[in-house]
Each structure stands twice: as structure tokens, then as C-alpha cells.
Design a binder for these strands. Structure first.
Length: 508
RNA sequence: GGCGCUAUCGUCUAGGGGUUAGGACGUGAGAUUCUCAAUCUUAAAACCCGGGUUCGAUUCCCGGUAGCGCUACCA
């Protein structure tokens, strides 16, 4: 029996994130990338990006580009990878096929692996039968004892053969930082195929070679790999390679407690970016999924604070439900504490995308836009909600406001009508209306009609923005008046226009 | 079916053989504001079930249940 060689804990930390470029990067994977990155940075180690594209059918170059862009956006960087190189290339599996082949031949020669001539149909039949008899469906071991010379003859004769790794007759155990010692019976592992009859190596085999070649010390990945780990440990041992530490991260679930997927809405990094979620907010939230600082009473962490506080031994093994609401709360926090210029910039882009602003914003328009964003930003937790909120400025629709059922009760009141009439009378002659004049007018109306509080302000607000709730008049009125003088794709109606239109519509 | 992992408020979690079981999101109430949002204060809200060990178990052990994962010549 081969002695197990473990990584010395003193070895410099080397970790990797190894995605398949088969689609947009998903939240669960990003969290895995983040934990790898945090662990590396925490311990002054190396973070490696490796592209697992052995599935040539589904892998696409554009996804690799996208993935790199997404990780960078989040704020991650890597020390070795397909785009930056490194001492252990290649960082793309598709460039390494001959290496895998060499190791497989060595295992055959050392009789740690053998050719298997069983057909897929045969295997499937055995499996079905085992299931029917309520047994563990594992490989029968039929080809294990075929004489190597005989196997060679059959292969030479053109019979297709896969290569199986011979699993030792003892339990396979490994250490997991998140879960402690894990043990699997060799019965369960059975002899896994490491090279298909097509000659293509399988994942559980290549991943070991890659990790060993790259001198990975800690394999941090999703817990969907935990049942594969004993197979991989067997490969390390057969090859006489040091076994790394493992850390299997729990699954991220959707609100229905099922694995988070597209069904649950936005789940790719790109979609959060497009929604106007700030990268530091996403990073902060993701770090809190399955990890908490000692004490557990802090929620907001900058990148540097995360690096300082994070460690794998505090990672929670239980699956976590992704809470969009909490992410948005964190995002609002970061929006509020961002430098205004940044939010102005991002908000302007969101309004441009919605077609509310011209492609190039400068001078008066720029100043006005910043004011608009300052007014509306407290109302949103994602920046892409700004155009919707900006409707109160851009889409004045008297008819719609009058038709709104929630306003009906108000319109029925004589007091309301009086206030509206009075406001129309005063405001029509004011152009532009200033906050000071507005206040004076409201005081006069109060005296004339006897209305005060909600009775006084609600009707006026409805005339101006169609709703009885909204931002402060002192900020709202200048924004409307200034906006009405700008050349914009959608004209902003002045107070005068809004009021006359409202009265006219009401009369009809 | 088999194997594995997991189990503290609705959600993310802290804690741990004796605690008023702590924090955060969300929810309710109050304050503030013309209103809404924001903000502040405040309240309600949890140790999956059953055995065992123990003077004492939510915490340790065993079993059950449930959720999730794996069970491929996918990754």
C-alpha cells in the first residue's frame, strides 16, 4: 500500500477557480471564486484561473471572455490564468490532452488501471438490475482481471476499451475543512473510468492532474463535487501525488429551497451589473452567504476587511437561501456611501439606456440630471430603477392621474376641488415657479380654502406628478421648471403646462 | 433504491453542557415629514422530532424525519 502524501500545511497557499465556459457565470460559481480569492489573499497565496473546457461541445470562447470580464468587474484578480500566463501552463484543459494520456499509460503499465471492454449497454443493464434489487449500482469488476497481454491483443484487434482506475480494497477518507473527516466505502466508489473508449479523459481524472500540476494546496469548490472526491483521492494516490486539502462549499438555493437557477430570476453576474448592483455590494452579500465573521454581528465589509476577516474554518456547511432583498439592502447602503460622481455617472447611463436622456449629456443637462438622480436615488435599491422613478418628471399624464381609483375619494371632496382651482389660478401666472413662491402660494390657498396638511398638499401633488406621494416640493419644483427649459428626447412639462393640462382634462 | 452532506427566528447567521439564545434583512408599531422613500426608536419572531450520556442538553452521541447533492464512457 502506498503511503499517503499530504500537503504540508506550511506550503504556500495555491488555490484555483476552474469554471467551464459553457454559459454566463452563475452566482454559486462566483461565490466559489470569491471564497478561493479571499482565502488566497488572506494567506498571501496564489489565486489561479483555469478554464475547464474538456467539454468541447458546450464550451465557447465568448463565454470565457465574458467570464473574465465578470470576475474583474466583481473585483477579483488572479495571479495565473489563461490571459496572464504563469509557471504551470497551460491554463486551459483543451491544450493538455497529451499530458493526460501520458499519465494514463503510466497507470496501465503500473497495473493501477486496466482496460475495460464492457459496452455501455452492458453497464447500463447491470446498473438497472442493481437498482431493481435495491443494491448500490457499482461496477462489477468484470474486466479487472483480464490479463494485460490479452487486453493488448483485444485492443489491437480493434475492440474499443475504456480505462478504469483500480480502487483499493479499503475505505477512502479525506479531510474537508468545512465538513471535517469524510469517509467513503470503496464499494461505493467502484472502479471509475478515467479515459473513455473514445480516448477522451474524464473530469474526475483530469482535474486531479491539473490540480497536481499546478501545485494546488486547497481545493475549494461546490459541494456537488463531494461524492466525486473519493474517486479523485484514489487518482492522487495511484499517481503518488500529494493530496490537497478540500473545502466543499454548500449549495446556494432559491427562495423555494431548490438549487438557485435561471428560474429564480437574475442569477448571473452580468444581470446584477445591468440592474445597477454595485460590485462591492454583490461581493459583500456573497461573502455573507455561508460565512460570518466571529461574533456574527457585522454585515458591511469592504474588500480589505473581508480579506482580513475571512477564513475557511468559519464557513458554514449548511445550504443557504439567496435573499435578493438583503442584497438590495446592502446595495442601497453602498449607493448611499458612494461618491456622488459615481452614482451620477451610473444613473445617467441608466437614464440614457431608457432613452430619457440624449446620448451625450453635458452642460446644463448634466447638472440637471445630477439633481434628478440625487432626488430619486433614495427611492431605489438598484440603479436601473431610476428611469421608472423618473416617470414623475418625464411622464406627466393628467388623464391617467384622474382615472386612478386611489385618487377617486380625494377628487370627490369639495375642499380638494377648491384647492386645485386655487392652485391653478395662482400658479398659472408664475413662470418659473420657485420654491419660495410655491410656499407663499400654498399659504394663501390655506387661508382661502381652510385646507391644511394632506388636504392641502395631496391635490397639488396629484396635479403635478399624478400621485399624492413623492419627493419634497422644494426639490421637485425647481427640477420640473429647470427641466422644462432643456432640450431632451422627452419634453419635461413645466408646472404651468402640468396645471393647465390637468384642469383642462378635468373639465372634460 | 443506495451513498454522502446538512438541520438555531420567514431568510442570512452568532453562540454554546447552566444565556433574558445575540446581530442583520424582511414584517408590525411609533417618531419625523404635506405625503411616500430614506432615517431613528421599538415589538413580534428560532434551537426539526425521539431516545441516550449528564445534576442539567438547543449544544455531545445514536436513531428518525426532511432538504440538498452524487449515484454516467457530463463537468
Amino acid at each position: 500500500m502506498l503511503p499517503w502524501i499530504y500537503m504540508s500545511p506550511n506550503d504556500k497557499v495555491r488555490v484555483r477557480f476552474a469554471p467551464s465556459p459553457t454559459g454566463h457565470i452563475h452566482l454559486g460559481n462566483v461565490r466559489t471564486a470569491l471564497f478561493n480569492w479571499l482565502f488566497a489573499r488572506k494567506h498571501g497565496g496564489t489565486f489561479i484561473l483555469r478554464i475547464e473546457d474538456t467539454d468541447l461541445e458546450r464550451s465557447e470562447a465568448r463565454y470565457e471572455t465574458q467570464l473574465i470580464e465578470d470576475l474583474k468587474w466583481l473585483g477579483l484578480d488572479w495571479d495565473e490564468g489563461p490571459d496572464v500566463g504563469g509557471p504551470f501552463p497551460p491554463y486551459r484543459q483543451s491544450d493538455k490532452m497529451d499530458v493526460y494520456k501520458g499519465y494514463a499509460e503510466r497507470l496501465i503499465k503500473e497495473r493501477k488501471a486496466y482496460y475495460c471492454f464492457c459496452t455501455a449497454e452492458e453497464l447500463e443493464r447491470d446498473r438497472q438490475q442493481a437498482m431493481a434489487e435495491q443494491r448500490q449500482p457499482n461496477y462489477s469488476g468484470k474486466c479487472r482481471n483480464i490479463d494485460p497481454a490479452e487486453a493488448e491483443r483485444r485492443r489491437a484487434a480493434g475492440e474499443p476499451a475504456a480505462i478504469r482506475l483500480q480502487i483499493p480494497e479499503r475505505p477512502i477518507r479525506f479531510h474537508d475543512i468545512v465538513r471535517g473527516d469524510v469517509e467513503f466505502s470503496n464499494e461505493v466508489v467502484s472502479d471509475p473510468i478515467i479515459v473513455r473508449s473514445s480516448g477522451m479523459p474524464t473530469y474526475n481524472y483530469v482535474v486531479v492532474i491539473d490540480d497536481a500540476d499546478m501545485k494546488i494546496t486547497h481545493v475549494i469548490r461546490g459541494d456537488d463535487h463531494i461524492s466525486n472526491t473519493p474517486k479523485q483521492v484514489a487518482v492522487y494516490e495511484a499517481l503518488g501525488l500529494p493530496v490537497p486539502e478540500f473545502a466543499h462549499l454548500s449549495t446556494i438555493l432559491g427562495p423555494d429551497r431548490e438549487r438557485l437557477s435561471k428560474r429564480h430570476g437574475a442569477t448571473s453576474v452580468a444581470s446584477f451589473r445591468d440592474m445597477g448592483v454595485l460590485p462591492e455590494a454583490l461581493m459583500n452579500y456573497l461573502a455573507l452567504l455561508g460565512w460570518a465573521p466571529s461574533g456574527g454581528d457585522r454585515e458591511i465589509f469592504s474588500k480589505d476587511e473581508l480579506i482580513k476577516e475571512f477564513d475557511l474554518d468559519r464557513v458554514n456547511a449548511a445550504p443557504a437561501v439567496f435573499d435578493f432583498t438583503k442584497l438590495y439592502w446592502i446595495n442601497r447602503h453602498y449607493i448611499k456611501q458612494s461618491p456622488p460622481e459615481r452614482i451620477h455617472q451610473m444613473g445617467t447611463e441608466a437614464l440614457q439606456r431608457a432613452g430619457l436622456l440624449p446620448a451625450s449629456v453635458n452642460g446644463n443637462v448634466s447638472g440637471w440630471t445630477n439633481g434628478l438622480i440625487d432626488l430619486l436615488a433614495p427611492y431605489v435599491d438598484q440603479l436601473d430603477q431610476l428611469p421608472e422613478k423618473a416617470k414623475i418628471i418625464f411622464n406627466h399624464d393628467a388623464a391617467a392621474a384622474l382615472a386612478l381609483p386611489e385618487n377617486a375619494e380625494l377628487f370627490a371632496s369639495d375642499k380638494t376641488k377648491a384647492v386645485m382651482q386655487a392652485f391653478a389660478k395662482h400658479a398659472v401666472n408664475e413662470s418659473p415657479l420657485t420654491p419660495e413662491r410655491f410656499k407663499a402660494i400654498m399659504d394663501e390657498i390655506k387661508a382661502e380654502t381652510g385646507a391644511k396638511g394632506k388636504d392641502l398638499f395631496h391635490p397639488v401633488r396629484i396635479m403635478l406628478i399624478g400621485s399624492h406621494s413623492g419627493p419634497d416640493f422644494n426639490k421637485l419644483i425647481p427640477l420640473i421648471e429647470d427641466g422644462s427649459k432643456l432640450e431632451l428626447p422627452t419634453h419635461v412639462k413645466s408646472v404651468h403646462e402640468r396645471v393647465t393640462e390637468f384642469i383642462a382634462t378635468q373639465k372634460n
